Simulated assay, not measured.
Amino acid sequence: MMKLSVIAFLTLLAVGCNKDDDSNNDNGAADGELIANVDGNEFKASTQVGATLYAGTFNITAIKPSTGETIVITVSNASEGTFDLGPDANAQSGAIYMISGQDAYGSVGEGGSGQIIITKLDLDNETASGTFSFTAVHQIVDGNGVIITETVEITDGVFNNITLATTIPGGNSTLEAKVDGNDLNADSVTALKITFGGNTNIVITANNNTTNQNLSLSFSDNLTVGTYSAASDYVGMYNPSLGGGTNNYAAETGTLTITAIDLTAGTVEGTFSFTAKRLDPNDPDVTYEITAGSFSAEIQ
């Protein structure tokens, strides 16, 4: 099961902040709305859609509230123009379709393809518009060890005057960890409360913006001070080179210890360690040991 990248999580901060103007563009999307067809079925997001442009990387994330379906598109070195979303795209570009945060279909895998045309990046008015389509694939391994590929077609995608955030949310959050004995050296750390399907999680993400390493922790806001197990109680994710929804390694074993949490004040502290293994059978079959982890976060 793939998880949203840190950029997509940050994009969710813009959700619900779009303009109230209901005027339509020539392609049928109202202001602040993203529409598309998913295997011929309507996808429309107007209250849960947002876009970001951080350090040249554009991301748009949209959620259909009634089903939990999610579309995430990321473009590196973004500008107004046409960009490939398929396997030959830039390493930090691609598109993902998910259902309630699970069963991720990606455009950058074998058999995937796609294109986004960014028609407007208005930094003065902080809005973005464009069109897109992509073919996304999802692979599972059956009980006999056979890889089965499933495909979803996203067509006629349009987004119109979506609110565009260009500043990463502030805060004094810190996260330290070692990856195979080497310091992560995160230079940006963000803690968010994210709600999917009625469940609210605290998601802490840390980036090394030089190496593009990304590490994230996700756990229920119902957890209290104590020690918890990986997979069953919390999700730990590591990406050695963030981009395009690929090369995600998830905690298979490990522990998370919450030493302090105050949801009223919006703070949480703790320690963690985990062993991360690949999610996608097409990714390199390596294991990462995440040790000496600690965090002190201000929840946005």
Rank of each mutant, 00 (worst) to 15 (best):
M1A: 10
M2T: 10
S5H: 01
I7N: 14
I7C: 00
A8L: 01
F9R: 06
L10Q: 12
V15S: 12
G16I: 12
K19Y: 04
D20K: 15
D26M: 13
G28T: 10
A36E: 12
F43W: 08
F43V: 11
F43Y: 07
K44V: 14
A51W: 10
A55I: 07
T57F: 01
T57L: 13
F58M: 05
N59Q: 07
T61C: 09
I63P: 01
P65V: 05
S66M: 06
I71Y: 02
I73Y: 09
I73R: 08
V75G: 06
S76A: 15
S79P: 11
F83H: 06
A89D: 03
Q92G: 12
S93I: 03
A95R: 05
A95N: 05
Y97V: 02
Q102F: 10
Q102E: 14
Q102C: 00
Y105D: 00
G109W: 06
E110P: 08
E110H: 00
G111N: 02
G112A: 01
S113I: 02
S113N: 14
K120S: 15
D122R: 13
D122S: 11
D124S: 12
G130W: 09
G130T: 03
T131Q: 13
T131S: 14
F132W: 07
T135W: 01
T135N: 07
T135P: 00
V141M: 11
V141I: 15
V141G: 08
V141S: 09
G143Y: 06
I147Q: 15
E150P: 00
V152L: 07
V152D: 00
D156A: 15
V158M: 05
N160L: 11
T163E: 11
L164F: 08
A165G: 15
A165V: 10
T166R: 15
I168G: 00
I168V: 15
G170M: 04
G170C: 02
G171T: 04
G171F: 01
N172H: 10
S173F: 08
T174A: 04
L175T: 04
A177I: 06
K178D: 15
D180E: 12
S188Y: 11
S188M: 04
V189Q: 09
I194S: 10
G197W: 03
G198I: 12
G198L: 12
T200A: 08
T200R: 10
I204H: 05
T205F: 00
T205R: 02
S216F: 03
S218C: 05
S218G: 14
F219A: 04
N222K: 14
L223R: 04
T224Q: 14
V225F: 06
V225S: 11
V225G: 00
G226W: 07
S229F: 08
A230R: 03
S232H: 02
S232D: 15
V235C: 01
M237F: 08
Y238G: 02
N239A: 13
T253C: 03
T253Y: 03
T255Y: 07
I258T: 04
I261M: 09
I261G: 01
L263E: 05
T267Y: 02
T271M: 11
F272I: 10
A276C: 11
A276M: 01
K277A: 11
R278Q: 15
D280M: 07
P284Y: 04
V286T: 14
T287K: 09
Y288G: 00
I290R: 04
A297P: 05
